[in-house]
Every structure is written in structure tokens, then in C-alpha cells.
Nucleic acid binder design. Structure first.
Lengths: 122, 122
DNA sequence: GCTATTAGGGATAAATTTGTCCGTATCAGA
DNA sequence: TCTGATACGGACAAATTTATCCCTAATAGC
């Protein structure tokens, strides 16, 4: 996956959940997989700005961390589906809270950021 | 702060909250500041494994994003205190949920990771 | 024969984050 | 005078994450 050189220390709860869903698209993938978007190609269509390579890598990590389970159908063209494990499902309330906060405060956040750009009055 | 080359797109709520507390120590700092650990030197003593430089950088970003407010006392030796803004305080339930999840599932997570290291039976 | 679909890896580059080291300045105390 | 505390920034290096490009392999459709 990549040999880490700095040991991770999971001193607080945040460090653990960040290790798991800290990737750029991971939390959104958990969200989508739970919504029934199961196949890699579907996931990519749902997140067009994510590169397919990175989605694959992050799916591997979610699988490695026990959040999702990969089900392989031996068909052609290949078919794979991802499902949340029970462990992964336990994340849903948290992911949901994060998403809800983001939706609720997006306006305020963007307004704040916009103010930074305004020229300072003289 | 650093000129970003890849534009951020905040298509979903998760992306926003990740932008804000995605840094390695940010969520923990929000947590600590709320607990009353206000001065940079105190924060560092509370997180000895974080480098002071990075704490400063991430404090700047939290301030930039409107999460914390810096109060400067014009004294010597210098004194600075950080406080959560109202906007920052709105994050608390989410940060708390993340932390609680981490604490609750740390055992399960580590057990899962440990299994990966076990030799496969033949 | 081309093209597209499917899932994914190898190699590598670019972007970003984190860390290290040193320097500014001021005052207090040994 | 030397050391330590305080807060912070510059310059740079190292680690990590994300992105780009190209490859495999089987089948359906034109």
C-alpha cells in the first residue's frame, strides 16, 4: 500500500477515524456505497473529478481497514461490487453528521472565505 | 498559506468539513481549545509529538477558516490565546462524534489490523 | 479489425502536507 | 552574560497523497 516511515500513533479517537476516512474521497465513497452505488465504474461516474486510479487505491485502503467488502463476480466483462461491512456501517452516523454539517454551513463557510478576498477599505 | 494548484471543489458536505479539520492535528486542537487549552505553548505541551511549526501553521489555517480567533496580549513575554468562534463551536458536535467513534472502535480496528499480520495457515 | 465496456495494476510525476533547523525579539532570573 | 520562556516565521527537506499515462484481458457491437 506504501511503506509508511512515520509511525502512526492513535492517541485519540480522531486520529483513528482520520486514518480510515481521511482520504480525499473515502468518506464520500462510504456514503455512496451505502446508497447502493456499488460498482467501481458507477462510483467513478458519481465522482467524475476523481481519477479512477485514486478511487481504486482508496477502495483498497477502505477494504484493508475492514470498512468495505469486495465481491467479485467471475464474469466478463468483469464485475465487482463493494458492500459496507458491519464495521463500515458503524461509521454511517458519523459520516452522516459530517455531511450534514457541511451542507448546513457551506453557505457560511463560503461567505467567510469570500470576505478574505475583498479589498481592504482605505 | 500556499498557492494551491488544484482547485478545491466542495460538491458535498464532507469535502468542506475535511477542508477545515483534515489536517493532522486540527480536530484535536479544536477539541483542546474548547477544553480551555488556549495558548500555543500549552497546546504543544498537550501534543508533544506534533512539531511546533506545524501546530502554528494549522492554527493559522483554522483562523483563516474562521474556526478560531486569535487574541493577542501586548505583553512581554508574548502572550496569545485562541478561542473558538461561534462558527468553530458549531463543529463541536461533529468533532465529538468523530472522537467518540474512534474511542469506541479503536479496539475493533486494531484487532482487524492485527489479523492482517498473522501468517496464513497452510 | 476497431471500439467500447469492465476492473485494476505499474511506473512515475506532481501536489500537498508535515517536519527540521535556525533566526527574530524581549524580559526574567541565576 | 548565559539560559529559558514566549510567539512566530523563513528556508528547506522529507514524507505522503493524489494524479497521469499506459498496460492487461475477454466480450459485444459495428
Amino acid at each position: 500500500m506504501y511503506e509508511k516511515k512515520i509511525p502512526k500513533s492513535f492517541a485519540c479517537g480522531m486520529a483513528i477515524i482520520m486514518e480510515i476516512i481521511g482520504g480525499k474521497w473515502k468518506s464520500y465513497m462510504v456514503y455512496l456505497i451505502n446508497k447502493g452505488v456499488r460498482r467501481p465504474s458507477e462510483l467513478q461516474r458519481a465522482m467524475p473529478s476523481a481519477s479512477r486510479r485514486v478511487l481504486d487505491l482508496q477502495l483498497r485502503e477502505l477494504e484493508f481497514h475492514g470498512i468495505i467488502k469486495r465481491v467479485i463476480y467471475h464474469e466478463l466483462p468483469p464485475k465487482v461490487e463493494y458492500y459496507l461491512t458491519d464495521f463500515g456501517a458503524s461509521l454511517l452516523p458519523v459520516v452522516d453528521a459530517m455531511d450534514k454539517w457541511g451542507e448546513a454551513y457551506q453557505g457560511e463557510f463560503e461567505a467567510l472565505m469570500k470576505k478574505k478576498e475583498e479589498p481592504v477599505a482605505l
